[in-house]
């Protein structure tokens, strides 16, 4: 395949890695966007989900918000935000869109995790005289942790994908290499950018997979 060797040539050319449009800069942008937005989304979604899950209220909302999130095209939201006053503030539309699409999986998974905690364990905790706050922190949260972390993993992968599409609406990140490739009609650059994005997404997924394999040891030790 000629295109593949062209893409390889593009990737191995040091000139393509440096500068404002270079791979290093775009990679850093992508990483910062993903991490910052993941933190913001967790700060918004997890407290709400933990409290709702603890109280057992708002379940329909917490579960259905994921389905709604799936039906709304990421690209449409990015462009809509770009045309609002937020669009004037650099990466504003990208950050808002990333958070909007990361919150639903976090909320749903954390809520379901909290509700799936065995009720008899919660009752036993109450019987031992634990307050609501103690039950939340010492019983429900540790037992719900695997589901919560699964939500974080889904959100992280979603963030990487959304940050890529943000390039279509002028946002930063590795997607810009792809859109610039399309504008230059350079198939080699498009493919090279896509390989970088795919590798980035798979590494993120792989890190969570690895963390999950290493985690059960201490997670079980603490909750047993």
């Amino acid at each position: 395949m000629n295109t593949l060797s062209d893409a390889w040539d593009w990737l191995t050319d040091p000139a393509n890695w440096s500068g404002g449009d270079g791979v290093w800069h775009r990679l850093t942008e992508h990483l910062v966007l993903t991490v910052v937005c993941l933190v913001i989304s967790c700060l918004i979604a997890l407290p709400i989900a933990l409290v709702l899950g603890h109280l057992g209220k708002g379940g329909a909302l917490a579960v259905n918000i994921s389905n709604v999130g799936r039906a709304v095209p990421t690209f449409a939201v990015l462009v809509l935000l770009l045309l609002t006053p937020i669009g004037k503030w650099g990466q504003g539309p990208t950050v808002v869109a990333l958070v909007l699409f990361a919150v639903p999986p976090l909320l749903t998974n954390a809520y379901v995790g909290m509700r799936e905690v065995d009720r008899s364990i919660v009752q036993a905790a109450r019987g031992m005289g634990m307050t609501g706050r103690q039950m939340l922190w010492r019983v429900e949260l540790p037992l719900a942790l695997p589901m919560i972390l699964n939500g974080v993993r889904i959100a992280a992968v979603q963030l990487v994908a959304t940050a890529t599409i943000a390039a279509l609406a002028g946002g930063g990140g590795l997607g810009r290499i792809i859109t610039a490739g399309f504008n230059l009609a350079s198939t080699a650059q498009v493919v090279a950018g896509a390989v970088l994005v795919a590798a980035f997404a798979l590494i993120v997924e792989g890190l969570f997979e690895l963390a999950e394999r290493l985690a059960p040891g201490w997670a079980r030790g603490r909750t047993a």
């Binding site: 599409i165 792809i178 493919v191 896509a194 994005v197 795919a198 997404a201 798979l202």
Partner: peptide, 18 residues
């Protein structure tokens, strides 16, 4: 299937361009 699902849509379309 997990690998395919992890690849962002824009990258997927781009990889199929050639």
């Amino acid at each position: 299937t997990t690998v395919l699902y992890t690849i962002p849509s824009l990258a997927m379309f781009s990889l199929l361009l050639p």
